[in-house]
Amino acid sequence: MVTEMMFYFLSFVAILSAIMMISTKNPVHSILYLIVTFFAIAGHYFLLNAQFLGMVHIIVYAGAIMVLFLYVIMMLNLNEDAEPVKSKYQKISATVSGGIFMLVLVASLRSAEVSLEKTRNTDIGLVNQLGKVLFNDYLLPFELSSILLLSAMIGAVFLSKK
């Protein structure tokens, strides 16, 4: 009952702020709405008992990536008048391709099985369960992706030394 109400509330916030993010003219406002969307999605993770995923989602997306986005937009000082003027053909083609993408999404989600009830009460999202799965069943992909991230970080430090 409580979880259901929270689910609808979070979904409402997520969808509303996502729409606001696209429709608002000011880039900084756009970013702020996107941050709200990320928080709502993190709330969904908490509802599914995936606390680790939810927290990491907030730390990585809302706390790091969006701060960088905001940093770049503030540094370039983008404002409403800085928005590039797009031609009519670009707008029409963007609308059509967006509509086709939406069609694909709706079609694939219609046939998808709603398994919210099944996943709600598992402990798979808790950090020790997740660690066991990552380090036993998916060790190689996990290590490979971490090496990828580490090399990117070392590369950035190395580039700054030049």
């Binding site: 680790f52 927290m55 907030i58 905001l70």
Partner: peptide, 19 residues
């Protein structure tokens, strides 16, 4: 059970006030 991560996430969103 993820208290440290919670503190970490609160710290990481704290910068938004200043920004």
């Amino acid at each position: 059970n993820i208290g440290i991560l919670y503190i970490f996430s609160v710290v990481s969103i704290g910068v938004y006030g200043i920004m």
